[in-house]
Amino acid sequence: MNFILFLMRIVLGGVFVYSGWGKLMSPVENFKAVVESYQFFSALLVKPISYVVPWLELVFGAFVLVGYLTRQSTVLLALFLLSFIVLLSRSLLMHLPISECGCFGSGIVLAPWQALVLDSGLFLIAFILLKRKSNLFSLDRRLHR
């Protein structure tokens, strides 16, 4: 069971590291265009969100990957996933003209419904990790947290 939880941590952290990295490797205006396409945030918020979210994904994805501040980082990623699920569901219900979720920069191309399925699965993983503690192969264990 511990090893399965470890694999789940790797998957969750790895996806967020890839997602953040993919966005940071593209011009920031690309992610800004994605955020605008969801027609949810005011114009004032779009720019700071575009700059900050990819870095948060990368940093806290890396924390989960190596098992540092695991619980806190998992909570943050779970909150991200919940907000992505809400945004994606809303975009599908409102039939917004979004052909690509913008989740991974220019890398993997996912339609909003595909991203919704992925994020729901990742949220379940985050939920399980929070419910069942495991610090197998984690930095927290080395640091005795």
Binding site: M25, S26, P27, E29, N30, K32, A33, E36, S106
Partner: peptide, 19 residues
């Protein structure tokens, strides 16, 4: 330049999917 799209408007750079 390492990412796309990018645009040069009379040589002036605009990077990304600009509005």
């Amino acid at each position: 330049i390492q990412g796309t799209p990018a645009f040069y408007v009379n040589g002036r750079l605009l990077s990304g999917a600009q509005p």
